[in-house]
Protein backbone atom coordinates (compact mmCIF):
# COMPACT_ATOMS: atom_id res chain seq x y z
CA UNK A 1 0.00 0.00 0.00
CA UNK A 2 1.39 3.39 -1.00
CA UNK A 3 1.62 6.25 1.47
CA UNK A 4 -0.16 8.53 -1.00
CA UNK A 5 -2.21 7.39 -3.94
CA UNK A 6 -4.04 9.58 -6.44
CA UNK A 7 -6.30 7.74 -8.89
CA UNK A 8 -8.26 9.17 -11.81
CA UNK A 9 -8.04 12.71 -10.45
CA UNK A 10 -9.78 15.56 -12.25
CA UNK A 11 -9.42 18.93 -10.57
CA UNK A 12 -9.59 22.62 -11.30
CA UNK A 13 -11.21 25.97 -10.68
CA UNK A 14 -14.73 26.95 -11.71
CA UNK A 15 -16.02 24.72 -14.50
CA UNK A 16 -12.65 23.96 -16.05
CA UNK A 17 -10.54 20.91 -15.20
CA UNK A 18 -6.86 21.84 -15.08
CA UNK A 19 -5.81 18.21 -14.67
CA UNK A 20 -7.65 14.99 -15.57
CA UNK A 21 -6.99 11.27 -15.40
CA UNK A 22 -4.07 11.85 -13.03
CA UNK A 23 -2.62 8.80 -11.21
CA UNK A 24 0.33 9.41 -8.92
CA UNK A 25 1.64 7.48 -5.94
CA UNK A 26 4.29 8.08 -3.32
CA UNK A 27 5.80 5.39 -1.10
CA UNK A 28 7.00 5.96 2.48
CA UNK A 29 10.29 7.90 2.76
CA UNK A 30 10.48 8.31 -1.01
CA UNK A 31 11.18 11.47 -3.01
CA UNK A 32 8.93 11.91 -6.05
CA UNK A 33 9.16 14.84 -8.47
CA UNK A 34 6.24 16.15 -10.51
CA UNK A 35 7.58 18.31 -13.35
CA UNK A 36 6.11 19.79 -16.48
CA UNK A 37 5.69 22.90 -18.55
CA UNK A 38 4.10 26.10 -17.27
CA UNK A 39 0.36 25.59 -16.92
CA UNK A 40 0.68 21.79 -17.03
CA UNK A 41 -1.24 21.52 -13.73
CA UNK A 42 1.63 20.78 -11.34
CA UNK A 43 0.42 23.13 -8.59
CA UNK A 44 -3.13 21.83 -9.07
CA UNK A 45 -1.83 18.36 -8.12
CA UNK A 46 -0.25 19.81 -4.94
CA UNK A 47 -3.46 21.63 -4.04
CA UNK A 48 -5.51 18.49 -4.66
CA UNK A 49 -3.38 16.51 -2.23
CA UNK A 50 -3.53 19.20 0.45
CA UNK A 51 -7.24 19.88 -0.01
CA UNK A 52 -7.20 23.53 -1.02
CA UNK A 53 -8.39 23.06 -4.60
CA UNK A 54 -11.97 24.33 -5.00
CA UNK A 55 -13.19 21.34 -7.01
CA UNK A 56 -11.84 17.84 -7.49
CA UNK A 57 -13.04 14.28 -8.05
CA UNK A 58 -11.36 10.89 -8.07
CA UNK A 59 -9.56 9.06 -5.28
CA UNK A 60 -7.01 10.58 -2.91
CA UNK A 61 -5.81 8.00 -0.40
CA UNK A 62 -3.33 8.84 2.30
CA UNK A 63 -1.96 6.15 4.61
CA UNK A 64 -4.80 3.84 3.55
CA UNK A 65 -7.56 6.39 4.15
CA UNK A 66 -9.70 8.21 1.60
CA UNK A 67 -9.09 11.89 2.33
CA UNK A 68 -10.73 13.60 -0.63
CA UNK A 69 -13.59 14.99 1.48
CA UNK A 70 -11.38 15.99 4.41
CA UNK A 71 -10.57 19.65 5.20
CA UNK A 72 -6.93 20.77 4.80
CA UNK A 73 -6.52 21.12 8.58
CA UNK A 74 -7.69 17.52 9.11
CA UNK A 75 -5.22 16.27 6.50
CA UNK A 76 -2.39 17.96 8.44
CA UNK A 77 -3.40 16.03 11.56
CA UNK A 78 -3.06 12.77 9.58
CA UNK A 79 0.57 13.56 8.74
CA UNK A 80 0.35 15.51 5.51
CA UNK A 81 2.61 18.55 5.45
CA UNK A 82 2.59 21.33 2.84
CA UNK A 83 5.04 24.02 1.80
CA UNK A 84 3.23 26.37 -0.60
CA UNK A 85 4.94 28.03 -3.54
CA UNK A 86 4.54 31.59 -2.24
CA UNK A 87 3.28 33.02 1.04
CA UNK A 88 4.66 30.04 2.94
CA UNK A 89 5.25 31.81 6.27
CA UNK A 90 3.12 34.13 8.40
CA UNK A 91 4.86 37.50 7.86
CA UNK A 92 3.63 39.28 11.01
CA UNK A 93 4.54 36.38 13.32
CA UNK A 94 8.09 35.93 14.56
CA UNK A 95 10.18 32.94 13.47
CA UNK A 96 9.46 31.27 16.82
CA UNK A 97 5.72 31.98 16.57
CA UNK A 98 5.66 30.57 13.05
CA UNK A 99 6.89 27.28 14.49
CA UNK A 100 4.70 27.40 17.59
CA UNK A 101 1.52 28.07 15.63
CA UNK A 102 1.66 24.73 13.81
CA UNK A 103 -1.13 22.45 15.02
CA UNK A 104 -0.86 18.78 15.94
CA UNK A 105 2.61 19.05 17.46
CA UNK A 106 3.43 16.80 20.42
CA UNK A 107 5.98 18.15 22.87
CA UNK A 108 6.10 21.52 21.18
CA UNK A 109 9.07 22.93 23.12
CA UNK A 110 11.46 20.12 22.27
CA UNK A 111 10.21 20.03 18.69
CA UNK A 112 11.02 23.75 18.30
CA UNK A 113 14.50 23.03 19.67
CA UNK A 114 14.91 20.19 17.16
CA UNK A 115 13.94 22.47 14.28
CA UNK A 116 16.33 25.17 15.47
CA UNK A 117 19.09 22.54 15.52
CA UNK A 118 18.13 21.32 12.05
CA UNK A 119 18.09 24.90 10.66
CA UNK A 120 20.68 26.76 12.76
CA UNK A 121 20.16 29.98 10.80
CA UNK A 122 16.68 30.25 12.30
CA UNK A 123 17.84 30.03 15.93
CA UNK A 124 19.54 33.41 15.89
CA UNK A 125 16.57 34.99 14.11
CA UNK A 126 13.92 33.43 16.38
CA UNK A 127 12.46 36.77 17.54
CA UNK A 128 12.51 38.39 14.09
CA UNK A 129 9.24 38.77 12.18
CA UNK A 130 9.12 36.33 9.27
CA UNK A 131 8.25 39.20 6.92
CA UNK A 132 11.72 40.62 7.53
CA UNK A 133 13.58 37.41 6.59
CA UNK A 134 15.54 36.93 3.37
CA UNK A 135 14.21 34.57 0.69
CA UNK A 136 16.53 31.76 1.78
CA UNK A 137 15.68 32.18 5.46
CA UNK A 138 11.98 32.17 4.64
CA UNK A 139 12.34 28.92 2.75
CA UNK A 140 14.17 27.37 5.72
CA UNK A 141 11.40 28.55 8.02
CA UNK A 142 8.78 27.15 5.65
CA UNK A 143 10.51 23.75 5.80
CA UNK A 144 10.88 23.87 9.57
CA UNK A 145 7.21 24.83 9.98
CA UNK A 146 6.02 21.98 7.81
CA UNK A 147 8.24 19.50 9.68
CA UNK A 148 7.02 20.61 13.14
CA UNK A 149 4.10 18.09 13.37
CA UNK A 150 6.43 15.28 12.24
CA UNK A 151 4.59 14.60 8.96
CA UNK A 152 4.77 11.37 6.98
CA UNK A 153 4.70 13.25 3.67
CA UNK A 154 5.70 16.76 2.66
CA UNK A 155 4.15 18.29 -0.43
CA UNK A 156 6.48 21.00 -1.73
CA UNK A 157 5.05 23.32 -4.35
CA UNK A 158 7.92 24.82 -6.37
CA UNK A 159 10.16 25.28 -3.34
CA UNK A 160 12.95 26.88 -5.38
CA UNK A 161 10.78 29.39 -7.24
CA UNK A 162 12.35 32.87 -7.26
CA UNK A 163 15.49 31.64 -5.50
CA UNK A 164 19.05 32.09 -6.74
CA UNK A 165 20.84 28.92 -7.98
CA UNK A 166 22.88 28.81 -4.75
CA UNK A 167 19.78 29.02 -2.55
CA UNK A 168 17.95 26.50 -4.78
CA UNK A 169 20.84 24.07 -4.23
CA UNK A 170 20.38 24.54 -0.45
CA UNK A 171 16.68 23.76 -0.78
CA UNK A 172 17.43 20.55 -2.72
CA UNK A 173 19.86 19.62 0.08
CA UNK A 174 17.05 20.00 2.60
CA UNK A 175 14.77 17.82 0.46
CA UNK A 176 17.46 15.16 0.12
CA UNK A 177 17.62 14.92 3.94
CA UNK A 178 13.88 14.27 4.32
CA UNK A 179 13.84 10.46 3.83
CA UNK A 180 16.50 10.24 6.56
CA UNK A 181 13.98 11.90 8.88
CA UNK A 182 11.34 9.37 7.87
CA UNK A 183 9.51 11.88 5.68
CA UNK A 184 8.47 11.24 2.07
CA UNK A 185 8.43 14.20 -0.35
CA UNK A 186 6.22 15.03 -3.32
CA UNK A 187 8.14 17.82 -5.04
CA UNK A 188 6.39 20.00 -7.60
CA UNK A 189 9.30 21.62 -9.35
CA UNK A 190 10.17 23.89 -12.24
CA UNK A 191 13.87 23.07 -11.98
CA UNK A 192 13.02 19.57 -13.14
CA UNK A 193 16.48 18.21 -13.86
CA UNK A 194 17.89 19.18 -10.44
CA UNK A 195 14.81 17.86 -8.68
CA UNK A 196 14.85 14.53 -10.55
CA UNK A 197 18.52 14.13 -9.66
CA UNK A 198 17.62 13.89 -5.97
CA UNK A 199 14.39 11.92 -6.55
CA UNK A 200 13.56 8.21 -6.61
CA UNK A 201 10.82 8.56 -9.18
CA UNK A 202 9.20 11.23 -11.28
CA UNK A 203 6.14 12.23 -13.28
CA UNK A 204 6.07 14.60 -16.24
CA UNK A 205 2.83 16.51 -16.77
CA UNK A 206 1.72 18.19 -19.97
CA UNK A 207 -1.64 19.90 -20.54
CA UNK A 208 -3.06 18.41 -17.36
CA UNK A 209 -2.08 14.78 -18.06
CA UNK A 210 0.80 12.53 -17.06
CA UNK A 211 2.89 12.01 -20.21
CA UNK A 212 5.71 10.09 -18.59
CA UNK A 213 6.46 8.41 -15.30
CA UNK A 214 9.09 6.12 -13.91
CA UNK A 215 12.42 6.05 -12.20
CA UNK A 216 13.99 9.51 -12.04
CA UNK A 217 17.17 8.18 -13.62
CA UNK A 218 15.16 6.77 -16.56
CA UNK A 219 13.40 10.08 -17.17
CA UNK A 220 16.70 11.95 -17.03
CA UNK A 221 18.21 9.48 -19.49
CA UNK A 222 15.34 9.73 -21.98
CA UNK A 223 16.58 12.08 -24.74
CA UNK A 224 13.07 13.00 -25.95
CA UNK A 225 11.89 13.90 -22.47
CA UNK A 226 15.05 15.85 -21.80
CA UNK A 227 14.66 17.84 -25.00
CA UNK A 228 10.91 18.46 -24.56
CA UNK A 229 10.49 19.00 -20.85
CA UNK A 230 13.74 19.23 -18.95
CA UNK A 231 15.57 21.99 -20.83
CA UNK A 232 19.29 22.50 -20.92
CA UNK A 233 19.50 24.63 -17.80
CA UNK A 234 17.63 22.20 -15.63
CA UNK A 235 14.28 23.95 -15.77
CA UNK A 236 11.16 22.93 -17.61
CA UNK A 237 9.96 25.48 -20.15
Amino acid sequence: MSLLELRDIAAGYGEIDIVSGIAIHVEAAEIVTVAGTNGAGKSTVAKTVTGIIPRCRGVVEFDGRDIIRLAPETRVSLGLGYVPQVANVFPSLTVLENLQVMAGVRNRKSRVAEMMALFPGLAERRMVRAGALSGGERQQLAFARALMPNPKLLVLDEPTAALSPALAAQVFDHIRRLPGLGVAALVIEQRARQSLEISDRGYILDLGRVVMQGKASDILANPDMAALYLGQDGSTH
Binding site: T50, G51, I52, A71, P72, E73, V76, S77, Y82, P84, A87, N88, V89, F90, P91, S92, L93, E97, V101, M102, A103, G104, R145, P149
Partner: peptide
Protein backbone atom coordinates in the same frame (compact mmCIF):
# COMPACT_ATOMS: atom_id res chain seq x y z
CA UNK B 1 -2.95 36.49 13.98
CA UNK B 2 -1.97 33.63 11.66
CA UNK B 3 -5.50 33.51 10.17
CA UNK B 4 -5.32 37.31 9.78
CA UNK B 5 -2.03 36.93 7.88
CA UNK B 6 -3.05 34.13 5.53
CA UNK B 7 -6.20 32.01 5.81
CA UNK B 8 -5.10 29.27 3.40
CA UNK B 9 -1.69 28.87 5.02
CA UNK B 10 -3.42 28.75 8.41
CA UNK B 11 -5.60 25.87 7.21
CA UNK B 12 -2.66 23.95 5.76
CA UNK B 13 -0.86 24.55 9.06
CA UNK B 14 -3.57 22.49 10.74
CA UNK B 15 -5.18 25.46 12.53
Amino acid sequence: RAVADDLTLARTSGI
